[in-house]
Each structure stands twice: as structure tokens, then as C-alpha cells.
Design a binder for these strands. Structure first.
Lengths: 168, 168
DNA sequence: AGCGAATACTTAGGTGGCGAAGTATCCTCC
DNA sequence: GGAGGATACTTCGCCACCTAAGTATTCGCT
């Protein structure tokens, strides 16, 4: 197979930094993981922009939709899952609410709480973006046979399992 | 093997969004790629913080060091490789220069240009961070046998090759 | 019952980053 | 050789996000 960016990266590394110990295969795997993630991030950004959402608006709608209780959550839950601060979440929700994609409902049983709920419009635009985004992923996946895809999935899972052990 | 975050994610998906067509294997692969990248990003952040660098300071030093001409580049080249704007680059370099990790040298043959050069201190702290960071990667890679690692690398490359075709 | 700690969210102040405009320098072509 | 455009970097105004402090409410303990 022709070389990819990662091959060139690893070759350069070997030339210039002989003294820094490193395993080519390990470096190759993780650099490629990073390149794939980066590519998909950009593809997502394009897809999402096409339907008229910013990256972070889509992300917020997305975690709101893929929960056990789809379309409904507290700001704190969303913030945790998105890896943003509570303050950041307030800002995002302000924007989403103003755009009409979510609404804030005061919780009756605990008046400190707020329930974030997606609106019909929010759900519709999220679905549009999802669809476009899925196409980019499917397109990439076509580089592999079904069998290869299954193997890749199995090996990646061994790695994620370990990473989740490390995180506790 | 026990289930990981991705298994739970895919299961939830199937329960709640039956109507949105999606391929489990494809979704599994790309969600795991994202989870691994996310884990390593955080591991890097911890490693880098330990030696006293912020994330973006390290990133900047890093691309500066792994070039064909290690330790020397123009701001524009760095900005392109880091995916930040020219303006953002100016800001980063201001900080790095103030901290004493790089210096700006006016280019003599073309006085519009500036040459960014790493200092001894900058190189030293980058190496420290590199070392710590490599350990997190090696630790993850130990989840796989050497043979599995090679297979994983081969399959990932098929995907990166396609992604690079798409980018032109 | 009531006081202090904990919880849920919002506001305030500061930082990195972006796009666009600005400044300086170099290249092209008549 | 001089005008117009391209190039390289910086400055400016704005935005999303962070940490820390603030407000409101509920829980826990005596």
C-alpha cells in the first residue's frame, strides 16, 4: 500500500530523534487513531455547518438526544458528558434556547433544578445533521471489508477496555 | 470480553433510535477511535501539566520539534500544521517567547519573515513531556499482542489512506 | 426545628482563539 | 522602475470557555 501521512511522520521521527526510544507500531497506531478522529471531526463540522448549526450546538443537541432519556436532561448531566464546565453549559443553553432548539423547564420536585428539553425544531435539525454526518463515516468504512471492520472493532475494543480500566 | 462504554452506547442507540439506519460495526469502530483519542488527549494533558506546560504550549513545541528541520520554522508553517489561525499563532508565540522556550529571529533574506527557534530550555522541557506522554501510550498498547498491534496498524492505515484521498 | 454543609445553576472576570483589517515587505509585469 | 498585487506577520474586536464567587434551595445532624 502507498504511504500515508503517518508513515512519513514515523520515518521523519526515526531520522531525527534516534536517541528517543519509541516503538514504531505503537506510534503508528495512535497517530493514525488521531488522524482518523481529526478527519471525522472536520467532516462532522462541515456536515453540521451545512444544516446551520455550529459544532458545539450540534454536540449539545447530540448528547441530549442519545441519552437513556432522549431529549431530556439536567444542565449538569450535559456538562459532564460534554466535558465542559457548568458555566460553559449555561452559555450553550442560552444560545440553544434563543435559537428555539431547546427549552428550560423548572423542576417541580426540586426547585434548584432545571430540566432541559429538546424542541421539535431541535430534534429535526439534529436528525438532518446526523444523517449527513453518518454518510462521512460510512464512506470511510468502505475502505474495509466487513470482515476487516469486525476485526478492527475487536482490536479497538481491547484498547478501550484497558483505557476504561485506567480511568477507573 | 466485558462490555465497554461503546457497547452500552450502541445498545442504547438501538433501543431508542430504531428508525435511524446505522451500521453497528461502523458506529462501534468510530466511537472507539474517538474514545481512544479522547483518553490519550487527557493523558497527554496530565503528562504535560506535570512538567509545567499547558496543552497548547506543548503542542506548539511539539510540531516545532518533529519537523524536517527540527527546532526551526516560520509562524505560518506552525499555524498550518497546528490548525490554528495566524492570529492565534502570534498569541501562542508571544507566550512561549516570554516563557523562554522559543525565540523569534528576523529573517535576513526576506524581512517580512520571522524564524521561530526553540531554545535549549524549550527542547529540554519538551523532551521531559514526551517521555511521560510516551508511557501512557505504551501502557495502552500493552492491551494488545505484537501481532494484534500489527494487524490494527494495517487496518487503521487502510482507513487513513482513504481519508487522505478524500482530503485531496 | 434550625443551622451548617451540600447541591444546582447562574453571574463575573479573565484567557485562548478566530476572522478581518492593518502594516511592512517583496514580486510581477508593463 | 514604479504601480498593483501577493505574502508574512501583527493588531483589533469578538466569542466560547474556564475558574471562582454568588444565589437559591435542599439535606443532614443535633
Amino acid at each position: 500500500m502507498a504511504e500515508d501521512w503517518t508513515d512519513r511522520h514515523v520515518a521523519r521521527w526515526k531520522d531525527h530523534w534516534l536517541d528517543l526510544a519509541f516503538d514504531e507500531a505503537v506510534e503508528g497506531v495512535f497517530v493514525r487513531v488521531n488522524r482518523i478522529d481529526r478527519y471525522l471531526r472536520r467532516a462532522k463540522q462541515r456536515a453540521v455547518a451545512e444544516v446551520g448549526l455550529t459544532d458545539f450546538e450540534y454536540d449539545t443537541l447530540h448528547v441530549l438526544m442519545i441519552r437513556d432519556t432522549p431529549g431530556s436532561a439536567s444542565p449538569t448531566e450535559l456538562a459532564t458528558e460534554l466535558g465542559v464546565s457548568g458555566a460553559g453549559m449555561t452559555g450553550r443553553l442560552d444560545g440553544l434556547e434563543k435559537a428555539g432548539w431547546i427549552r428550560r423547564i423548572p423542576a417541580v420536585e426540586d426547585r434548584r433544578r432545571v430540566i432541559v428539553e429538546v424542541t421539535k425544531a431541535g430534534m429535526a435539525i439534529w436528525r438532518q445533521a446526523m444523517d449527513l454526518r453518518g454518510r462521512a463515516e460510512d464512506d470511510l468504512a468502505e475502505a474495509l471489508t466487513e470482515r476487516e471492520l469486525a476485526t478492527l472493532n475487536r482490536l479497538l475494543k481491547k484498547v478501550t477496555v484497558r483505557s476504561e480500566e485506567r480511568e477507573g
